[in-house]
Structure formats: structure tokens, C-alpha cells
Simulated assay, not measured.
Amino acid sequence: MLNALEVITTVVVGVMVGVEFAVAFVINPILKALPEDSGQLGRAHGGRMLGALMPVWYIGSLVLASIWAIAGWDRPGAGLVVTAGALLILSVVMSLLLLVPINNRSKTWTPENRPADWKEQSNRWDRWHYVRVAVIIGAFTLLVTALA
């Protein structure tokens, strides 16, 4: 049963990392290259879509890692799982304090109502998102290492 939990947790976190990596290094650069207001409208739509899904994914990943850490406390790699869980906690805290406030504003923007500093706010979100991606890649790497 613990083996199934380990695999499920690793897959869930791995897919989350893949989505967030794609947002940072594929989707957002594509949106920035679109003409006129298309990129900003695309980011707003993405913020609504992923803003609804990602909280469940982040919290679910943290819960799964926590259960794995508790259930496998006496097994090799437990320290790696606990450290991965700490990184997932950090990613949730970063999200709540740094990224979600910007996302909550930007997902309602249109060319008619966006603030004058909308590009600066989007760039700030991107910079924090790069850091968050690095944090969750670290968590994923630790989980994979704990499986080995």
C-alpha cells in the first residue's frame, strides 16, 4: 500500500511540476509574443483556469507527501520526503503571499480596465513563479530520490 502511495504522490507532484514548468517556459513566452492585447487576455484566461485548479493540486500534493512521510517514517528516504514536504509547504506559502494576490487581480483584467502597471505586475508574477517552479522541482527531485 505504501508503494502505491509513493508512486501516486510522485506522479501527482511530477505532473504539477510539468504544468508549472510549461506555464513558465512555454505558455507565458508564447503569450508575451502575441500581438496587441491577445497575450494579456490569454494570461487572464489562464489565471482563471489554473487559478481554480492549482490550489487543489498544491494542497493535494502536500497532503500526499505528508501521508507518505508519516506512513514511511521508519523507511529509508523518510528524511527526503519530509524535506520535499517542507518545500511543498514553502511553495504554498509563496503562492498565497506572492502569486495569488497578483493572479486574483490579473485574471479580471481586460484591455479596458487593466491598470497602467499591468506589465510590471505580470513580470513580477513571472519572477516569483520561476522561484516557485525551482522549489517544486526540488520537492519532486527529493521524492524521486526517496523512491530509489
Score class of each variant (00 low, 15 high):
V15A: 13
P29A: 04
L88W: 01
P111K: 06
T9I: 05
I59N: 10
L62W: 08
I136S: 00
S122N: 14
W73E: 09
T9Y: 03
V26D: 03
I59H: 07
Y130R: 13
V56Y: 13
E6W: 06
I67P: 00
G79K: 03
R43S: 10
V11C: 01
V63I: 14
A134P: 02
K119L: 13
S61M: 06
A24P: 01
S61I: 06
R105I: 04
D126K: 11
A22T: 15
G60C: 01
G77L: 05
G85Q: 04
T145R: 12
L31H: 04
L90D: 07
L99V: 13
T83I: 12
K107F: 03
I89W: 09
S122R: 14
A71P: 00
G46R: 00
N28W: 07
A52T: 12
V133N: 07
T83W: 03
R105V: 09
V17E: 08
F25M: 11
G85D: 04
V13E: 02
P111Y: 07
L31N: 05
F21P: 01
P29M: 01
L2C: 03
I89H: 00
P35R: 08
Y58R: 14
I137D: 02
T83E: 10
F25L: 12
Y130M: 14
A116F: 09
S61R: 02
P29D: 03
S66F: 10
K107C: 08
T9K: 01
A116E: 15
R132S: 09
M1G: 05
G18F: 02
A24F: 06
D37P: 00
M49L: 15
L142Y: 05
P76I: 04
R43N: 13
L88V: 07
G14N: 03
P29N: 00
A146H: 02
V144F: 10
G138I: 09
A148Q: 07
E112H: 12
W73C: 00
S106L: 13
D126Y: 15
D74V: 07
R124C: 06
L143Y: 04
R124T: 14
P101K: 09
P101W: 04
V144C: 08
T145C: 09
L98E: 13
I30A: 15
G42D: 07
L99W: 02
L98R: 14
W73L: 12
V63S: 03
G51H: 09
R43D: 02
A69Q: 03
V17R: 06
S106C: 13
I27W: 09
A65K: 00
V131W: 15
N3Y: 07
V133L: 14
G42C: 04
A65N: 04
L50P: 02
T108C: 05
F25W: 14
